[in-house]
């Protein structure tokens, strides 16, 4: 089939209402988590617990963006792991450099 024939064969399909509802639900989750972060920022004193809460909520938001908006949660497992597993290197980088940084301050 040539591309010209393709043009004529195009048919607009109706809106997938369930899919749009699902996407809007994800939007409200992201907005809600951001609001919760604000509430924590203004009601809790700065501490290790607060930072941990922020990191946790950030990972929740990242999960929804990557899994739903970027559709990675619905791709094949091998693609998902090819993208997610290399990020473990970053986890190590964070642990190493924050620890080294605090040592620079001490000595």
């Amino acid at each position: 089939m040539s591309s010209e024939e393709n043009t004529n064969a195009i048919e607009v399909q109706p809106v997938d209402k369930a899919k749009v509802r699902h996407l809007l639900k994800v939007m409200w989750i992201l907005a809600g988590v951001t609001v919760i972060e604000f509430i924590f920022a203004f009601t809790m004193d700065r501490s290790f617990v607060l930072v941990s809460i922020f990191v946790l909520l950030t990972i929740v938001k990242a999960f929804y963006i990557v899994s739903e908006f970027m559709h990675l949660g619905h791709e094949v497992k091998s693609l998902m792991y090819s993208i997610v597993l290399p990020m473990l290197f970053v986890v190590w980088l964070i642990i190493a450099l924050i620890y080294e940084g605090s040592m620079l301050h001490t000595y």
């Binding site: 693609l79 970053v90 450099l97 605090s102 301050h105």
Partner: peptide, 25 residues
């Protein structure tokens, strides 16, 4: 996707070095 992985490493480098310099102050 693989370009985004490499770009994620670039941003991680910037943010983690921020964390390191902050921890050293």
């Amino acid at each position: 996707w693989f370009f985004l992985v490499s770009d994620a490493f670039t941003f991680s480098g910037l943010l983690v070095s921020y964390g390191m310099v902050r921890a050293s102050h």
